[in-house]
Design a protein around this nucleic acid. Structure first.
Lengths: 224, 224
DNA sequence: TTAATAGTGTCTGTAAGACATTATGAC
DNA sequence: GTCATAATGTCTTACAGACACTATTAA
């Protein structure tokens, strides 16, 4: 990529400024509806001196977007095909990384358990899943990233039903509630939850069959 | 700053990767209680080819934090001494700047009108103040930055009374409400507003004197 | 006394939360 | 029928919004 001549107000060319390395670190979260909690993916990084469990991350390559770097790192380091990552915060302490001047852009990605679970099972020495409540003590600023990631996802799910579209359609209100309970990390009352989300959903007219108890109505996300 | 040897998973040294320039662009907002609206500071940038009005910004220097770069750019380019900037978003399209590969970290700063107004009066050819509703048509991603900045500030002020501590203490509820009306860009009912913020404030026991009408109680922000 | 502004009482509508009740299927 | 689960009715509480009313000063 050619950089045209450019002088800033002090007469220095843009290209003459020292530039930081830019990294991305990603909190990969997945709900566990069975246990009713959020789970964080951590990986053991053999490239860095510290052999600790940490968030997956990578350096931004030339011509690449931040989201692209996040998806590449998840693919390479955890064998995951991800959805749209969301930016959380830029960590910019000039001395935060003793390998040099490195900015880190923290991201969060929420994935369905069906995608994440197999990866952790296949590569237990590389990749682990930990309930977010027990996922502290990570190196660098990673504890803070996880905290922001959890807050971000919980706020989004408190706002509207399954904004990340993790649930395959059609689904019952019970399925949806279990998902939200896992994200929120606490029980939700069925009737309160129903009234909270009902207007954002579209009935399919169908119902579950063969289950114990009264069949449940099946829904899709409303048009939007 | 020395960069220790470091090989990533593909065997390349950290220092060998091409690195982006990192810039900061800042939406400087100030409430105008007289007119009841939020005002944006724009400056004419003679260094870039485009001579358009735009947000103040600068490139990140070595060893500097993003907040430091924001404060430096406000000082240099608008003669402003600012408070804590807040990050909004990283714009990362590799082709967003034709001078080269430049990431821009958007920020927002809210300043008291007493600080901003004199600057605009002293340097009308360099610095202008525009109501946010009329501050569209800016170059680059700046329109989007302004939108995010306004949303951020409005959300913060809807949450608690004057989180940026713009009002000098002590203040009356009328002063506080005027400030919030300017931030929100709409009228707020005195009684509703009072009940909304009362618990977060601490009475000084004093009252205004010499004004028309019943004297107003004077408040400070509650301890916190 | 009047004008002007500060502050309070109270009514309404809406929504969350909690609990009881009804509905509908499998067995 | 019994059991299990889905869905709804309704009561309480809280709070925003709206409006009327009272309080306290200057002039």
């Amino acid at each position: 990529m050619s950089i045209p001549e450019y002088h800033d107000s002090s007469g220095r060319r843009l290209v003459d400024y020292p530039r930081p390395s830019v990294a991305v670190d990603t909190a990969v979260l997945t709900p566990d509806p069975e246990r009713g909690l959020l789970v964080l993916l951590v990986r053991r990084d053999s490239a860095t001196r510290s052999d600790a469990w940490a968030l997956p991350g990578t350096f931004l390559h030339e011509g690449e977007t931040l989201a692209g770097a996040v998806l590449r790192s998840l693919d390479q380091k955890a064998g995951l095909r991800g959805q749209a990552p969301r930016q959380l915060y830029v960590f910019d302490d000039p001395r935060r990384d003793d390998r040099g001047w490195v900015l880190s852009v923290a991201h969060v990605v929420l994935l369905p358990p069906a995608v994440v679970a197999p990866v952790a099972e296949e590569r237990p020495d590389d990749v682990q899943l930990r309930p977010v409540a027990e996922a502290t003590g990570l190196p660098f600023d990673h504890d803070g990233i996880v905290e922001m990631a959890v807050a971000q996802v919980r706020a989004a799910y408190a706002e509207r039903p399954d904004p990340e579209r993790l649930l395959p359609e059609p689904f019952t209100l019970r399925d949806l509630r279990r998902l939200h309970e896992a994200v929120a990390g606490r029980r939700l009352q069925p009737d309160v939850f129903r009234r909270h989300v009902r207007d954002h959903l579209q009935s399919t007219g169908e119902a579950t069959r063969g289950s114990v108890g009264r069949p449940a109505e099946l829904f899709r996300h409303a048009s939007r």
